[in-house]
Design a protein around this nucleic acid. Structure first.
Length: 369
DNA sequence: TCTGTTTGTCATCTT
DNA sequence: GGAAGATGACAAACA
C-alpha cells in the first residue's frame, strides 16, 4: 500500500490519531535487546527502527535473513546518514524489479501493513515499498522525540494502533509546525512528495543514468559504474580491500560489476546470435543460388547427353544399314552390336559374343590398373 | 489497447 | 572448485 492510501484510511479513523495520549517511550516497543531480534516480525515496529537500533545492529540483524535487502539498504542509509528522501527515492527507483540484489532471492519481499504491526514484513508480495521505507529511513532522532505514539503492547494490536504507527511513520518528516496539520494536508504532502520523487527518477533516466549508477551514487561509492565494470579483477579486488567499504557497499559493488559484465556479455551474445542468423541466411541464399546453378548445369548436361545419344543412334542405324553379312544380307541390329576394342579396332559381332568380350576387356583393364 | 522489439537481469550451464 | 563468460528465459520499457 502507499502512504496516500494510508491517509485515506486515516480519515476513516480520525479520533485515534490525535486524541490518545502519547506516553509510551520508544524503548518500550523493543523490550528485548536489538541483538536478539532475529525474526522479521520483530521488525514490524519498523517505524522505530532508527531510533532504537544502531547501524551495526541493523547490519547484524539483516545478516540473519537473506531477504532483508531493503532493510540492509535502510541500514546503510542510517549508517551513511542519508536523508529519508534519498532512501525512499532509491526504493522509488524506476524498474525496481531488481535494483540492489544482495543475493539470489530478491524482489519477493516487501513491507506492508499487517494485522499485527505497523510495518510488517511479508514475502511473496511484489510491491514497491517506497513510501513506507522512505518514512522509516527518515525517522530521525529529533522527530522521534517530538512525537510519541501510544502502543497497546506486543500481545495485542489494534487496527487503530497500526494506523497510528503507520501514520506516525509518515508524519515525522514534517517540520514541527506541520505536525498538527490536517489529514488532507498530509495527503497533499505525500502526493507532492511522490510526484517529486517520480520526477527525479524520470530525470535520472532521462539523462541516461542507469539504475546502478543511481545506486552507486546513492550509496556514495567512489567509483563510476563504468570503472567498476571495466577495471581488471586485480584492480577490483584491490578496490574492495583498500577502500574500507561497508558490507553493503561491497555487495553493491559486486552486483554492479556482475550486472555490468553480464550486460556486456548479453549484448555480445545477442550480436553473435544476430550475426549467426545473418550468416545462416546468407548461407541459405548462397546454397539456393548454387542449387539453381546446378539445376541449370544438370539440365544442360541432360540436353547434351540426349544429343549425343541421338547422334549415336543415327550413326548406329547408318552403319547397320550399310553392313552386309557373308551372304549379302543386311545385318539385324537386334542380334549384332558394334564393338570397339581397346586397340581401336571396330567389329560387328553377335551380341552374346560382345558380352563375353566385354568381360574380357574389363579384366584386362583391371590387370593394367 | 495490442503487438513486436529492445534491453537488462537472473539462473544456469560452459569454459 | 571457483571465477568469468555464454546463453535461455523472463519482464519492463518503448515504439
Amino acid at each position: 500500500f502507499s502512504p496516500p492510501d494510508a491517509m485515506l484510511l486515516r480519515t476513516d479513523y480520525p479520533t485515534q490519531l490525535n486524541s490518545k495520549p502519547r506516553h509510551l517511550q520508544r524503548q518500550e516497543f523493543f523490550p528485548q535487546s536489538s541483538s536478539d531480534i532475529t525474526n522479521p516480525e520483530s521488525l514490524c515496529h519498523g517505524s522505530y527502527l532508527t531510533g532504537l537500533l544502531s547501524a551495526a545492529d541493523l547490519r547484524s540483524l539483516t545478516a540473519h535473513d537473506d531477504n532483508f535487502d531493503e532493510i540492509k539498504l535502510m541500514s546503510l542509509a542510517f549508517e551513511e546518514g542519508f536523508s529519508p528522501v534519498e532512501v525512499s527515492q532509491v526504493f522509488e527507483e524506476p524498474g525496481s524489479d531488481s535494483g540492489l540484489s544482495l543475493n539470489s532471492s530478491h524482489s519477493t519481499t516487501s513491507y506492508s501493513v499487517c494485522c499485527e504491526d505497523a510495518l510488517g514484513y511479508s514475502s511473496g508480495v511484489k510491491s514497491v515499498p517506497s513510501h513506507g521505507l522512505g518514512a522509516v529511513g527518515g525517522h530521525c532522532q529529533e522527530n522521534a522525540q517530538q512525537s510519541h505514539v501510544e502502543y497497546p503492547g506486543d500481545a495485542e494490536c489494534s487496527t487503530e494502533a497500526m494506523l497510528q504507527q503507520f501514520l506516525h511513520n509518515h508524519t515525522y518528516i514534517q517540520l514541527p509546525s506541520q505536525a498538527a496539520s490536517t489529514p488532507e494536508h498530509h495527503q497533499q504532502m505525500w502526493m507532492k512528495k511522490s510526484n517529486e520523487l517520480k520526477d527525479r527518477c524520470r530525470n535520472s533516466t532521462a539523462t541516461n543514468q542507469s539504475r546502478d549508477e543511481y545506486w552507486a551514487k546513492a550509496l556514495r561509492i567512489p567509483f563510476s559504474v563504468d570503472e567498476i565494470v571495466s577495471m581488471s579483477v586485480d584492480s577490483f579486488n584491490t578496490v574492495l580491500a583498500k577502500n574500507q567499504l561497508t558490507e553493503t557497499q561491497v555487495s553493491l559493488l559486486r552486483d554492479i560489476r556482475r550486472r555490468g559484465k553480464n550486460k556486456v556479455a548479453a549484448q555480445k551474445c545477442r550480436k553473435r546470435k544476430l550475426n549467426a542468423i545473418l550468416n545462416l541466411e546468407e548461407d541459405v541464399c548462397n546454397l539456393q543460388t548454387q542449387k539453381e546453378s546446378l539445376k541449370k548445369e544438370h539440365s544442360q548436361c541432360s540436353k547434351s547427353i540426349n544429343q549425343i545419344k541421338q547422334k549415336l543412334n543415327n550413326l548406329y542405324r547408318d552403319i547397320f544399314s550399310r553392313v552386309r553379312d557373308d551372304q549379302g544380307r543386311p545385318v539385324n541390329p537386334h542380334h549384332y552390336v558394334i564393338h570397339c576394342s581397346s586397340n581401336g579396332s571396330v567389329f560387328i559381332i553377335p551380341k552374346h559374343l560382345a558380352k563375353s568380350e566385354q568381360k574380357q576387356d574389363n579384366r584386362i583393364e583391371q590387370k593394367q590398373k
